[in-house]
Design a protein around this nucleic acid. Structure first.
Lengths: 235, 235
DNA sequence: AAGTGGTCTAGACCACCGT
DNA sequence: CGGTGGTCTAGACCACTTC
């Protein structure tokens, strides 16, 4: 880390989650935070901006910085990097690997990944279970030159933890497209719903900080169990 | 406006949309923008941060500031304040008002709006048509003390334009919950789909900058016609 | 090594909220 | 009016990319 404003943001986030400001529902003033952390005002403001972007805090000019109401837990957080493992912390999550191997990009995938057809990719298909019940099906393609190695052990846990902590990938931004469809027979079977029941779908295109696309994924969620939460700030 | 960094952000956004940087797919360097707009570096950086948050640009340390690929048009943009009218600019949008009147908050709504039961609210139910076909059903509750007046004429166009430009409301942040359900008979009829077909749903709780909740809405989208786009930045 | 973005500081002045 | 956030400046130094 070693970056002050991020460290302060993370520490404040922890304090917020620990309920340290629950009585007042307010953060200390900028002045107080400046003294506490011994940094300049801009650094405090940058840290707080992080909290605002994370949906934890809102600022009112002339009045103070307030906690947003705690969001429902157990929702899928669109803005969070890692997937289920971090979103549904209170639940038991299991992963069943349905497929994991190297493939070559066909024309369609190559176009979406902005690479040549034939480029080597990891293909994975996983069934995620929450509290022992089928929750989602996740199909992913990773560019092999960026993710050179993947195995069942890694894919059974959080792939993203591996990408970030082990491979040290710098993940920058993503496009997410959400819609819903009638589910097909094969997937209905996996999610234990009826064919033609709805499925909530997120298609995800993920880029490194330098702009390179490295992952394409499609997740199908159980329509009765999954809800997506997104906290938005205007201004 | 009168705020420099927002003005610069808006001007740059316009330039981007006008294709002014399409050849290089890069913004001018910070140095060049500082000279062009005659402001300090921090002001330029704040303006660019806006563009990053809007999903238009990404920054690469040591290299430059690059345009993100143009997103599919005709998607519902989760992050945008106004609704369909701004998202699907290329399309013909019509609104049919199914209900619009003042009601008193029942227990359930009062709880969600953090107000007393019996509080006066505007209730509206609208059918939105895109290119002459049913697209979504939008049900909204507005606190009447914050939105004192609403009529069919306003609700036929963009309610949000009215709230912002006429009522000068300062809209701050929102919680959006997305899921999908089987549609009921009445709504299936309106959207011209079959009962039990899927519906994509967004439930929205909107607050002013001072933290007051003023709107609650639920939108049901035609499952084959609606896609939601969300551009996310990590870091 | 030169170019370009990222972090941090110190200080000035403005705008808004509440008493 | 005092307290608190919002905008803006000017300058220093660091980190990464590119050649």
């Amino acid at each position: 880390m070693a970056v002050k404003y991020k460290e302060i943001a993370d520490e404040l986030e922890k304090d917020i989650r620990d309920g340290k400001f629950d009585e007042t529902k307010k953060l200390p003033t900028e002045e107080e935070l400046i003294k506490k952390y011994e940094v300049s005002r801009n650094t405090i403001r940058k840290a707080v901006t992080q909290l605002v972007n994370r949906g934890l805090v809102y600022q009112v000019q002339g009045s103070g910085m307030f906690l947003r109401e705690k969001s429902e837990t157990d929702f899928i957080n669109l803005g969070s990097l890692r997937g289920l493992t971090k979103d549904l912390t209170s639940k038991k999550i299991e992963t069943k690997i349905l497929a994991l191997h190297v493939v070559e990009a066909d024309e369609e995938i190559a176009k979406q990944l902005r690479c040549d057809t034939g480029t080597k990719l990891y293909y994975s298909k996983r069934l995620r279970l929450v509290e022992n019940e089928p929750f989602s099906i996740e199909i992913s393609y990773f560019k092999k030159d960026i993710v050179p190695y993947l195995n069942e052990d890694i894919a059974s846990n959080s792939i993203y933890s591996y990408l970030i902590e082990d491979l040290k990938l710098n993940i920058g931004f993503a496009d997410k497209v959400i819609n819903c469809e009638k589910i097909n027979e094969e997937n209905a079977d996996l999610l234990q719903v009826n064919p033609l029941d709805p499925a909530l779908i997120i298609e995800n295109t993920v880029c490194l900080t330098n702009g390179t696309i490295f992952e394409l994924s499609k997740s199908l969620f159980h329509y009765q169990k999954a809800k997506i939460l997104n906290r938005i700030n205007f201004k």
